[in-house]
Amino acid sequence: MGELYRARGASKVYHMGEVDVEALRPTDLDVIEGEVLVILGPSGSGKSTLLHLLGGVDRPTAGTIRFRDTELTDLDARGLTLFRRRHVGFVFQFYNLLPSLTAIENVAMATEVAPNPRDPREMIALVGLADRADHFPSQLSGGEQQRVAIARAVAKAPDVLLCDEPTGALDYRTGIKVLEVLHQVNHEFGTTLVLITHNAAIADIADRVVRMRSGRILETRVNEAPKEPGAVEW
């Protein structure tokens, strides 16, 4: 398996008024194609910043991030947009569905800008919401909304799925269900999964776990026996 991402000395400093906040200290990280990588850390540990840098939503202050053969740091705003469009699927803590579009439309909308999309109906069926496809977000529960968000992210056939606390706003049972769907996507399509969470239990499903605190990586460990999401408890 090759490297999907190769970050070297990537750091991020935010200028907050008159103080500089070093959200991410210079960091090296590799993401391997097809793996499930969980980045674990408390809030303020820099994990979201790292995820945003990987997703091309934000740029590092220093250092480089290479995605396959592309140096993300060389891309301009439009280049980053095209990068996100072609390669990245995002899943957010608060789902961020477009409230004015139905479930199926939210999925289909994302496929319109992707080069080789998957069938939106199949994706909605994959996340188990075929019968709710024509509901608006306001008519869906949180877990259902998150599954639609996953279907939307997967439908564009991304190379990597970046998930920002995908279960953070959900109760335990619903959270498990969402993890199962993510797991299934990784297995069925071989999509690389990078998942950030503050919930240590979730790390059990990972192939590798990165622990962060105060803007730096504390340790990276390989999980010899990843659990099925159904077996995780918190």
Binding site: T81, R85, R86, V88, F90, F92, N96, V113, A114, K156
Partner: peptide, 16 residues
């Protein structure tokens, strides 16, 4: 704002 931000993150161009 949130909707538009989402679209942007999803890879929609500024013009879109």
């Amino acid at each position: 704002a949130r909707e538009l931000g989402t679209l942007s993150v999803l890879g929609f161009t500024a013009a879109e």
